Simulated scan of single mutants.
Amino acid sequence: MAEYRIPPQAIKGRGLAWHQPHRFEREARNAFDDGWGGADGEGAAFAEVPPPATQVTWETARSAIARNESPDIGFTYGLNPYRGCEHGCIYCYARPSHSYLNLSPGLDFETRLIAKRGLAERLRDELLAPRYVPERLAVGTVTDAYQPVERELRLTRAALSVLHAASHPLAMVTKGSGVERDLDLLAPMGQQRLAAVYVTITTLDAALARRLEPRAAAPHRRLRTIRTLADAGVPVGVSVSPQIPFINDDMEQVLEAAADAGARAAFYQVLRLPWELAPMFRDWLALHYPDRAARVMARMHDLRGGKDYDADFATRMKGQGVWADLLRQRFAKACARLGLNRDSEPLDLSRFRPAALRGQADLF
């Protein structure tokens, strides 16, 4: 059987160019060139077509705050305005969640988004519930709250307005420079220890970033976002995740650049390849890095006990074995040298004032 390879020009601006079948599908189809589609009879199935446009479908939010039960995640409550993500990161562990919508974790994940109508209203109601006890609320931990579509829909902005009015603490992780648009809300919250922002910088290599995260802000732009947040008084950190063996090997340089820009905290995770993500990542490797694809996956198996992925809570974030220990040591030594993760103050839960929300109905 001839090797099936997606031409590079077909994926410009997108992380994937094909509809990866999800695990609940019974049938799978591949494009096939029968020789009849082009004037010269070649490349018909893969003729250049306009890049697929982003489609947004609205769903009514039945709740705003999701509860996390995983013991290896450092927060209990999360809030995600969108399902799917335009950034198109090939490594995104959330891709397989699109399977539950009967959509492809591949191209559909980055082009067919679900926006939650009424999210801010549901959030307001939940914060006003008599039994609600405030904890740090993690915003955008599954898909990015500041992906490009937020510029128009402003769901994240509406949710932040509720949290700001109630003085409710929040932390967020983002690759989007759009977070700067909400500095009028985040800056006063940060100064009162009510908000913290982590900016993900996977690598400083702009060309690699375009392949890994085609619609996310460029690395130099994310460093500028860190500087802008820090100058505004928002506690800011950096996520150097995911660590992908032999692909983004500049952890120390990223940490140093982020610290110079004003980051005062950092964390990392190792690449996770659950469900459909493993074959998609293998295809991406074969396309962009065929010379080292086998080596990358061999090291992933070293980190995952001989498998593509191990969902064990004890090891899924950092991996296991000698290579995981080496990553851990590199990260710890770099953070110690740069003064990261020192003297970080917890967010202030005592300021929470839900009564301030009772007069906000006219805002929505």
Score class of each variant (00 low, 15 high):
Cys85Thr: 04
Ala336Ile: 08
Phe32Gln: 10
Asn80Met: 03
Pro81Val: 01
Gly176Ala: 08
Asp250Asn: 00
Ser239Thr: 04
Gly262Tyr: 10
Asp312Ser: 14
Pro8Ala: 05
Leu119Val: 03
Ile73Thr: 13
Phe109Asp: 05
Arg282Gly: 12
Thr60Trp: 01
Asp312Asn: 15
Arg299Ala: 15
Leu223Gln: 06
Arg272Met: 07
Ile244Arg: 00
Pro134Leu: 08
Leu113Thr: 01
His98Glu: 09
Glu256Tyr: 05
Ala361Glu: 13
Ala31Val: 05
Ser161Trp: 15
Val254Asn: 01
Glu135Gly: 14
Asp144His: 02
Asp205Val: 13
Arg131Ser: 15
Thr225Asp: 09
Trp18Arg: 13
Pro148Lys: 08
Arg328Met: 10
Pro105Met: 02
Ala196Thr: 10
Ala159Leu: 06
Leu113Asp: 02
Pro148Gln: 06
Lys116His: 03
Leu208Ile: 03
Gly15Met: 04
Asp260Met: 14
Thr143Leu: 01
Thr57Ile: 07
Arg328Lys: 12
Leu128Glu: 14
Gln147Phe: 01
Pro21Glu: 03
Pro51Met: 12
Gln20Val: 06
Pro105Leu: 02
Asn248Met: 03
Leu163Ile: 07
Ala261Tyr: 12
Ser97Ala: 08
Leu119Ile: 05
Ala230His: 05
Ala120Met: 11
Arg264Asn: 11
Leu170Pro: 10
Leu127Asp: 07
Arg151Val: 14
His288Leu: 13
Ala355Asp: 08
Met189Ile: 04
Met1Arg: 15
Glu252Gln: 06
Pro51Gly: 14
Glu276Phe: 01
Glu3Asp: 14
Glu110Met: 00
Leu160Arg: 05
Ala187Met: 11
Ala158Asn: 08
Arg330Thr: 06
Gly305Arg: 00
Glu256Trp: 05
Asp33Trp: 03
Arg157Met: 09
Ala278Gly: 14
Arg154Pro: 09
Ser104Trp: 04
Ala314Trp: 15
Ala324Thr: 05
Leu107Gln: 05
Arg299Gln: 14
Gln360Cys: 11
Arg154Tyr: 12
Val162Thr: 08
Leu363Val: 10
Pro235Ile: 04
Tyr4Arg: 14
Leu113His: 00
Ser167Met: 11
Thr76Ala: 14
Val254Thr: 02
